[in-house]
């Protein structure tokens, strides 16, 4: 069957898939870190910090990922160059596509994670926080011991969704030439002049990643709610 013959380019796709997963996991870790930081800011006592967190989530969620990727990869180095030139000595920097990609995707989905964590934070019963405070725990200790463990359970379904969108968004990093799955499919499609075959094969690999992630999510949610009695 010639339709599914990848003509020796199969390994290129698999290598790309490996990098896609790697980029995805790095971005997700960054996004969750930023999300936790964001939610702490959203419930901060300082109104300035709250305003900064609100601005972050509002602005980032209103701008397309592609624009932000291009802005970080092409815009930030030229911005640094222009600003430093004003002070006399221009500094030339350039970003590695991997770093730019992970930073941007992580930064974008950090905003989405913040919203997920915010909902999870609000789902923790207030009485428990008050009880912890009454026991003499400080705000930080209450957060670490009482809020955070329960918050993580409430946040799991939302974080799963963020991951699903995030892993598909990594395809956009191909625009700045990071050799992940999408970019490699593009390269492979050129030589044998069979674009449909290669992009379809790539899409099936993405589909496999989605199916795998679904299974992991189901397992994690089940595990996180063990010991929870539901009626």
């Amino acid at each position: 069957m010639s339709f599914f013959d990848l003509q020796g380019y199969g390994w290129l796709l698999l290598q790309g898939a490996k990098l896609t997963l790697y980029v995805g996991i790095c971005s997700m870790v960054l996004a969750m870190g930023l999300g936790l930081l964001g939610v702490l800011c959203k419930f901060s006592r300082s109104s300035l910090v709250r305003f900064a967190a609100d601005t972050y989530t509002t602005v980032i969620r209103g701008i397309p990922e592609l624009i932000l990727i291009l802005l970080v990869y092409y815009g930030v180095p030229t911005l640094i160059q222009d600003v430093t030139a004003k002070f006399g000595q221009p500094v030339y920097v350039s970003f590695d596509p991997f770093v730019a990609g992970v930073a941007t995707i992580g930064f974008i989905y950090g905003a989405f994670s913040t919203e997920v964590f915010r909902g999870a934070y609000l789902a923790v019963p207030r009485g428990q926080v008050e009880a912890a405070r009454a026991c003499g725990m400080s705000r930080a200790l209450t957060f670490r011991r009482v809020i955070l463990p329960q918050m993580m359970r409430f946040a799991l379904p939302g974080l799963g969704n963020v991951w699903m969108v995030l892993i598909k968004a990594t395809a956009l990093i191909s625009v700045i030439q990071l050799p992940e799955l999408m970019r490699n499919a593009d390269i492979a499609a050129r030589a044998p002049r069979e674009p449909f075959t290669f992009f379809f094969a790539a899409s099936l690999i993405y589909l496999l990643i989605t199916i795998g992630s679904n299974l992991v999510q189901q397992w994690a949610e089940k595990r996180a709610s063990r010991g929870i009695i539901t009626d």
């Binding site: 956009l172 674009p195 589909l207």
Partner: peptide, 23 residues
């Protein structure tokens, strides 16, 4: 729905725009 929600939009655009060239 499973296919179109499980794959990146960019792949779908490329499949239709570049992929159609194969046919």
């Amino acid at each position: 729905t499973f296919y179109f929600r499980g794959t990146p939009l960019l792949v779908q655009i490329f499949l239709i725009y570049y992929g159609s060239g194969q046919f």
